[in-house]
Design a binder for these strands. Structure first.
Length: 462
RNA sequence: GCUCCUAUAGCAUAGUGGUAGUGUUCCUGGUUGUUACCCAGUGUGGCGUAUGUUCGAAUCAUACUAGGAGCGCCA
């Protein structure tokens, strides 16, 4: 698409210049001899108001075709607008309807639609204000993520999407196979994977962390940013079967530096979006959640709370609140506990560290107490866990012990263990769900509305 | 996987036993400056699907389907 964007027109205000725009009609207000219409080209939230009057040769032909959703090319002069709601407007000298949108079956009319309904028309919902704003914010965040890491000399690493390690322990996996489902080869009553494409069982990745560690143990600091797949039957407003995850892994880095990076990272992204998407953020603040901008500003300003798991348990016990899941040392923190800490006790993000080893993954570094591991979860109000990370166990013998304790087979992790055998280093990293971060920033309630085409349990319509 | 809620015209909703209203969109007419434009008017559904209870069912019951919220799992 060449030519001026509506975003640029509002910025540069090229008064009394002949310009051409291309976009889609959002609304039309008709009078006897002229009509107002508003055009949006996706470059910004704002529509450009266009005045079309009956001096145009083809006025009577085009007016019936100018309906909500029609695509259009308009040339004309930018002038100051006498109206209150916009600074400038376009007086059309030439109007060409490119694609019509018959109003009797174009379902996306100029009115409010529920998000539930818009989910059933995922191919049209990017044409709405909300989903346009989400797309632009999502784009800005993607850029900011790379910018943050690149400015700090992190190397961007692409870890595989198809993986053979079905024992990463991060969740149920989608199997990848070319075996014929109607005639699966059997050998000794078991599926004969030697006949499969990779000649062993393969799945979609649930995390690039283990592969990421290999590059961190060679290049220093690295990060990944790519799709991740979980075949869990999760049915919530914050789970997807296909989502995007950011996973930095840092060499010569302990749990404290890990927390510093996580906090700095979150604040950087929030700041970037507030500075670069003010119009879209205003929209979210007005229409979705009128506390969102204020909250984000406070989060940027304040230091995150950092407490150990044991202190969190004490805090919850002290509260005397009657939780559905009773609190005692050793339990995994439930949503209600996390929400209580972030929303009632501290009213800001909380980083909890040093969890009991029993409730965390095998690769997390054991503390000297032999009871807790150097895990860290960043919890935020409203959403709960947004980041999960840890310092990694860098001692080969301890790691083998942990693998065995979890009833896993060390042979499956031979290359991962060799990172500890040859030039082992303290290293740390974390995983951050991209869509959850978008929810956090925009205030959107359902994660299915912050990804263009959501995939979830029993749901893949587009 | 568990619990709860919902299902009425294109969209959003009212209607708790006697054969459906309202808003909005669309459409028609009017309006030289509107901006969720305004004013007037026309049209649209038989109430998710199935079975049952009843003289009679959007309205009660059961099942199924779809959607939503919460929980668990996690990012």
């Amino acid at each position: 698409m060449k030519g001026l964007l509506i975003k640029d027109i509002f910025q540069k205000k090229p008064l009394n210049n002949e310009i051409t725009i291309k976009g889609w009609i959002r609304t039309k207000r008709e009078s006897k001899n002229f009509c107002f219409t508003e055009v949006n080209d996706g470059s910004c939230m704002k529509n450009l108001q266009v005045i079309i009057d009956d001096n145009l040769d083809n006025y009577n032909d085009i007016i019936p075709l100018i309906t909500t959703g029609a695509s259009i090319e308009i040339s004309g002069n930018i002038v100051e607008s006498p109206g209150q709601k916009q600074s400038i407007e376009l007086h059309a000298t030439k109007v060409k309807v490119i694609g019509t949108a018959p109003a009797d079956d174009y379902v996306l009319q100029k009115k409010r639609h529920t998000f539930e309904y818009l989910r059933t028309i995922a191919h049209l919902r990017p044409r709405t204000n909300t989903f346009g704003a989400i797309a632009r914010v999502r784009n800005a965040m993607s850029y900011a993520i790379h910018k943050f890491f690149q400015e700090r000399n992190f190397i961007y690493v692409q870890t595989p999407i198809i993986t053979s390690s079905d024992c990463e322990g991060a969740g149920e996996m989608f199997q990848v196979t070319t075996l014929p489902m109607e005639n699966i080869p059997i050998n000794d009553k078991k599926i004969d994977y030697s006949k499969d494409f990779f000649s062993k069982k393969a799945s979609l990745t649930v995390s690039g962390q283990l592969e990421g560690e290999t590059y961190a143990c060679a290049l220093g600091n690295i990060y990944t940013f790519g799709p991740t797949f979980r075949a869990e039957h999760s049915n919530t407003t914050r789970h997807l079967a296909e989502f995007w995850m950011i996973e930095p892994e840092m060499a010569f880095c302990d749990i404290n530096e890990n927390m510093d990076t996580a906090e700095e990272f979150l604040k950087y992204i929030l700041t970037y979006v507030l500075e670069n998407c003010p119009e879209d953020m205003d929209f979210f603040n007005t229409r979705i959640d009128n506390t969102i901008i204020n909250n984000l500003q406070n989060i940027i300003k304040d230091k995150f709370i950092r407490i150990k798991y044991t202190e969190a348990i004490e805090e919850l016990t002290k509260s005397k609140v009657d939780f559905e899941f009773p609190v005692k040392w050793g339990i995994d923190l439930q949503s209600e506990h996390e929400k209580f800490l972030t929303e009632n006790v501290y009213k800001k993000p909380v980083i909890i560290t040093d969890y009991p080893k029993e409730i965390k993954a095998f690769y997390m570094k054991m503390n000297d107490d032999n009871k807790t591991v150097r895990a860290m979860d960043v919890l935020v109000p409203r959403l709960g866990e947004i980041i999960g990370g840890s310092e990694r166990e860098d001692n080969e013998k301890k790691l083998i012990n942990r693998i065995k304790e979890m009833n896993l087979n060390p042979d499956d992790y031979w290359w991962y263990l060799e990172l500890r055998k040859f030039g082992s280093i303290p290293h740390s990293g974390f995983g951050l769900g991209f869509e959850r971060l978008i929810q956090f920033i925009t205030g959107m309630q359902n994660i299915r509305d912050v990804i263009p085409f959501p995939r979830a349990f029993k749901s893949i319509d587009f």
